[in-house]
Design a protein around this nucleic acid. Structure first.
Lengths: 106, 106
DNA sequence: TCTAGTACTATGTATTGTCAAGTACTAAAT
DNA sequence: ATTTAGTACTTGACAATACATAGTACTAGA
């Protein structure tokens, strides 16, 4: 899969998934993987960055199936950011798709 | 505009525009700008890269309105690449859009 | 002669995704 | 008892690509 296409989009996907309900990192990796192919080493840095920027709050919870899980909870700022990004993506993708479709017909 | 979303997509747009007919750099900047906001200093490096990779051939032609123009012509390899990239973009964008639409409803 | 528009090049920087390796816990298989 | 697989997270070096800025140079009109 084209790595470049994912830039910026993964951040949007992570925000939207955590917005649904609190998630821990490993769960996020699997959830995002269902949409686009993605590497473990890609998601964790995004989570750290989004937390540093105040979009997520975190807390720990024990698990019976393995080590402690770090859960991510979206903040009001994160909600706002997900809306901004979602809007930007929608505008961007439809501009590109409109052109691309016209290009195919010729 | 979100810079990250453009990664990889500009290459696709440039390929599709040059595929229509031969273009020179400055013309490309204007054509791409109609689709997504883009900087001059972004397009020229893409043209150089795509030429180095054998997707474009170039030739010079004089102009009455300014300095010499460098025209880009797509090669068979470039045609192939534009199809590959277009397909990858279409699959990618629709995966993301399908998820994103589901996410909005909730 | 100056300015605006056209046309291309070069360089340094920032962002972000990938890869690889490592740590560590639990549960099931050998 | 030990190994293996699955879960869970961290870190650091690396690659790709868009941007900003500056510089060169040509033409035409004020």
């Amino acid at each position: 899969m084209n790595t470049q296409f994912k830039k910026g989009v993964l951040e949007l996907l992570v925000l939207l998934i955590v917005k649904e309900k609190d998630r821990y990192g490993y769960e996020l990796v699997e959830a995002v993987s269902k949409i686009v192919d993605v590497n473990e080493g890609t998601i964790y840095p995004i989570l750290k960055r989004l937390s540093n920027e105040g979009y997520f709050e975190t807390y720990l919870e024990e698990s019976k199936e393995g080590p402690v899980r770090k859960y991510y909870h979206i903040t009001a700022l994160g909600m706002k950011q997900s809306e901004v990004l979602l809007n930007e993506w929608t505008v961007f993708a439809s501009s590109v798709n409109d052109f691309v479709k016209g290009s195919v017909k010729k």
